[in-house]
Amino acid sequence: MVLEEKWPVLGRHEQAARWLRIWTDLGRAPRTIDAYARGLAEYLDRCERENIDPMEATREHIAGHVRELTTRPSHRGVNVLSIDSGSGLANATIQQRLVPVRLFYDFLIEEGQRESNPVGRGRYTPGRRFGGHQRGLVPRLTKLPWIPTDQEWLAFLQAAKLESPRNRVMLALAYDAALRREELCSLRTDDLDPGRRTLRVRAETTKNRYERVVPYSASTGVLLSGYLRHRATISRARGPLFLSESRRHYAQPLTLWSWSKIVRQLAIACDLPRFSTHTTRHLCLTDLARMGWELHAIASFAGHRSTESTLRYIHLSGRDLADTLQRGMEQIHAWRVEQLAQLAATAAGQA
């Protein structure tokens, strides 16, 4: 098994390897399996270092693993969003690392090899106060998405003008259609409908397996036409829309990691280190909210299962809130003045 070659510790724990094989056989995405294997391997490595039998682990042992994750140095530097250490992995990363450990113990319970799961999860508990929700093992921090200011966005686009036709149209589509990185890189030539200026986002490339059809603007259509002519000089075969132009992988599908590297280099050039492949999606959904789109329409456009997910993506800046408040106060003030005018008119009539 390839995963056991990458993480030898999995081969030393039969039940762990078996659990991952089941998930693989069920057709889970390779990236999901890889993330599960990494998280579980990290936990099993610690168990071996601390002489802990994973089959007998308790909540105390899991807490020790969480403590190690929160204090582990991050290659991105100090992370102020960890639980209380001021360093270590990000809260979202810790949550991701704990998911496979929790699911592994769920599997052991189903197999009759354990009676309880030492990894806590937030769940509904009848009879409890404050809505009856029990907290998970690690508090989940929810951050507002970062979006660039108008000046920062213009600076980024100015740098992008020097990019290849492929990179320019990818940035345009990423914003216009609010595409996730995998959705963008997985587009195929037959997903395009230039006549209607729409593209199909196939279910197998989406996060929640929901297929959708989204439009793109006329300016993006011009960029796309130019890229298709350029693509024909690389390959005339139908298939993946975006092709690599490097010597090593010429005419091969552009990978997710290559696209991330391209955006990262542009972000550094513009001194915008927080700009990522997901920023264009955040910005598009925020702009739709600013234009007054209904929440359900934005959720459908974004491919969200529920509007709760959409709310986490919509970021209204302090300036937007201030403008909204000012407009509201102006309406209230005008209404009060109108009522006072009517009162004055009534008093004059009575006199």
Rank of each mutant, 00 (worst) to 15 (best):
E182L: 07
L283K: 12
P215C: 13
P139F: 07
Y313G: 02
R290F: 09
E5P: 00
I314A: 06
E294Y: 04
G122F: 02
Q158R: 13
T279H: 12
Y124I: 12
P145V: 04
T93L: 01
S309N: 01
T189R: 11
N51P: 00
N91L: 01
E111A: 15
H315E: 12
P118G: 11
R264M: 11
A29W: 00
T280M: 15
I83V: 13
R319M: 04
L285V: 09
S74L: 06
A267W: 08
C284E: 05
F130P: 00
V78K: 15
L283E: 05
Q331F: 10
T280N: 09
R21C: 04
W293K: 08
E182K: 08
A177S: 15
R248S: 11
G120K: 08
L223V: 04
V119S: 04
G221F: 03
S217A: 14
G349P: 00
R336I: 07
G122W: 02
Y124V: 12
E163R: 09
L311Y: 00
M291E: 15
I109R: 15
G303R: 03
G127D: 09
H230L: 00
A351P: 09
Q15R: 14
T310N: 03
F242V: 06
G112S: 13
H133Y: 15
G11D: 07
N167Y: 07
H282S: 03
T280G: 06
A322C: 03
V101E: 10
D287F: 01
P165F: 03
V337M: 13
V9K: 04
Q15W: 10
S306I: 01
Y250C: 00
Q151T: 08
